[in-house]
Simulated scan of single mutants.
Amino acid sequence: MKKRIRILLVEDNLGDASIVQDLLREAEYMHELTTVARVRDCMRLIDDKLVDMILLDLSLPDSDGLQGLHRLRAHAPEIPIIILTGFSDIDTAEQAVRSGAQDYLVKGHLEGNLLHHAVKFAELRHAFRTELEELSLRDPLTGLYNRRGFRLLADQSLRVAKRNGRDSVLLLADMNDLKDINDTYGHLQGDLALRGAARAFKHALRDSDIIGRLGGDEFVALAVEANPPGISSLFARLLEQIEVENTKLEMSLPLSLSIGVAPFSPREAPSLNDLIVAADRDMYEKKREYRRRRDGG
């Protein structure tokens, strides 16, 4: 571990927190230790990207047993968690590991090397698990998130947006005339067109935005901390990138998208499902307009 690892200890017992602090002082790796007494105190630190690993007690003022683990895993599945507890219970330990904990350490048996090794190997195991999970969340054709991956990350992002009072915008896009492209040029060219649309989204949106392919010719994106007035500039960037892709594809049937929009306001805080339904209605109207123009109606 060459980087400084930022460890968050969630422990309300000052004596136990002091013991962990003393043990970590002997560690061979660089680290920063922050201590909080409640699970709810973790959330802002996590949202501000100040946490690399969590050491979690199971008896806290605002959570008991595995409740804290479940809350933290739901909020930040990308952060490895080690359980520190005074209870030596095989069943609880097994449930904790099945629920995503990287290790389960009993305070009464805690000593320096055990804790140091647990931290180092938890990070390695979590990185490996994350890599495997990432593969299961990606669409193999475009490299975008698949339906499962998009929903997982978008749900998490909307929770953060609601808590921080931030707007967001959901885009739902349907590629126009994919069937005609497949029939005219073959499915290989259709796949190239889908990849082109994916590249257009990636270049037009920011790294913090979440982009997915829901399947077939349907794409979705959550523009994080965007607001409705900013949508016109986002559309302009996306259309510009679509034209770039059209010059590469060189098809008489140009690549184009019908895009529906649904804004997220933290005051109303619609669910992801509500946003998708609203954007789908808007996309359907845009699709009808496109077909009228295409068919000269």
Rank of each mutant, 00 (worst) to 15 (best):
R281K: 15
G196H: 02
L115S: 00
R44Q: 15
A122T: 04
Q67W: 12
F264R: 05
G212R: 00
L14G: 15
V36D: 03
F121Y: 15
T142G: 00
D47V: 05
E225A: 14
A37R: 04
N113W: 11
T35S: 14
G297H: 10
H31I: 08
P77A: 07
H203I: 08
S258M: 06
V39N: 03
S168P: 03
G215C: 08
L110Q: 05
M43T: 10
D12R: 04
R6E: 14
G68H: 12
A221T: 06
S271H: 05
G65L: 09
Y145D: 12
F150I: 06
A17Y: 00
D41H: 09
Q156M: 15
A101V: 09
A161G: 09
F235N: 12
G296N: 09
D91G: 10
D207P: 14
S18H: 14
M175E: 05
A226I: 01
Q241G: 13
L239I: 10
R148W: 07
I211S: 04
A198V: 02
R291A: 07
M175T: 12
R71E: 13
E78F: 10
Q156A: 13
L105R: 06
D52F: 02
F128E: 15
L239D: 13
L257D: 04
L238Q: 01
D57T: 11
L23K: 00
L275M: 12
G108W: 06
V39R: 01
L114S: 08
H187Y: 11
N113I: 11
L69K: 04
R195L: 08
L33G: 01
D103V: 01
E268A: 14
T142Q: 05
H126E: 11
S18M: 15
K3I: 10
D191S: 00
V277K: 13
N246W: 00
Q67E: 14
I79S: 11
T34A: 12
R4M: 14
A76H: 05
T34M: 12
K248M: 10
G190A: 01
K2A: 13
R199V: 01
R40M: 09
P77C: 03
K107P: 13
D191F: 00
R288N: 12
M1K: 09
R71N: 13
L66I: 01
A27T: 02
S265Y: 11
L188G: 12
R25N: 10
R38N: 09
A204W: 10
V51I: 15
L188R: 12
P228Y: 12
A27K: 02
T130P: 08
D280V: 05
L253Q: 04
L275E: 02
I231D: 06
E134M: 15
R291N: 13
G112A: 09
A27N: 03
G108T: 07
K120Q: 14
G165V: 08
I211A: 01
E225T: 08
L124A: 15
E134F: 06
L272S: 02
T142N: 05
N146Q: 04
R129K: 15
L137S: 06
L214W: 08
H70K: 09
A101Q: 04
E123Y: 12
S233C: 11
E111R: 12
E131Q: 13
D217P: 00
G212L: 01
S208A: 15
L255N: 02
Q21C: 10
G86T: 03
P266G: 08
